[in-house]
């Protein structure tokens, strides 16, 4: 193991197992630069120990106590229906759900308006074509052609039967 591998062990000396400490101690006895680093760390640890012995104290403990009790008493009161809805809306999941629903609605509205525009476009064409074609004339023409077709069929059938009968008599 080289010095860089021991660096982490020196910083975490208090957290090492006895076996790990022994290996580190052996290296420290051989390596001067690591020993210097360990000595500096010990010195700094002593300074931190001194600094931490001074505990930060509350400026006015009684005031803080009153604040805590007052807030707790306020939060202990039964919530109104509006508060319930407000706290429900405050949940992150509900917020995301509402955002997703809003997004879906916007997308749906967008698609819907565009689809309707397209339909309206088709309708416009149909109307325009209808006015040019004049549908009633078209239907009249169609009916006439159908009627004439039916007549031709019956005539042809008649002529076919006649010819067949004539061949039989022959």
């Amino acid at each position: 193991m080289n010095c860089s591998a021991f660096e982490k062990r020196i910083y975490l000396y208090r957290e090492l197992t006895l076996a790990e400490r022994k290996i580190t101690d052996d290296h420290l006895s051989d390596c001067e630069s690591c020993r210097a680093m360990a000595a500096l760390l010990v010195q700094q640890q002593e300074r931190i120990e001194k600094a931490k012995s001074i505990k930060p104290v509350i400026n006015d403990p009684e005031r803080l106590m009153r604040r805590i009790v007052a807030t707790a008493a306020r939060k202990d009161q039964p919530e109104s229906q509006f508060d319930g809805i407000k706290s429900l809306l405050d949940h992150l999941f509900v917020r995301y759900a509402f955002s997703a629903i809003s997004l879906l609605l916007i997308t749906f509205l967008y698609i819907e308006t565009h689809y309707e525009d397209r339909l309206r476009g088709v309708a416009k064409v149909e109307i325009r074509q209808g006015t040019i074609l004049n549908t009633s004339n078209f239907i009249k023409m169609h009916l006439k052609s159908r009627q004439s077709k039916e007549k031709t069929v019956s005539i042809s059938r008649y002529s076919y039967h006649r010819s067949e009968r004539s061949t039989k008599t022959l």
């Binding site: 930060p56 509350i58 403990p61 805590i68 009790v69």
Partner: peptide, 18 residues
């Protein structure tokens, strides 16, 4: 509840302040 607060608020404040 008051007693719990009195007993622990100094320590709680010290941690939060740090």
């Amino acid at each position: 509840i008051r007693f719990l607060v009195v007993q622990n608020q100094a320590f709680a404040y010290s941690v939060a302040y740090r």
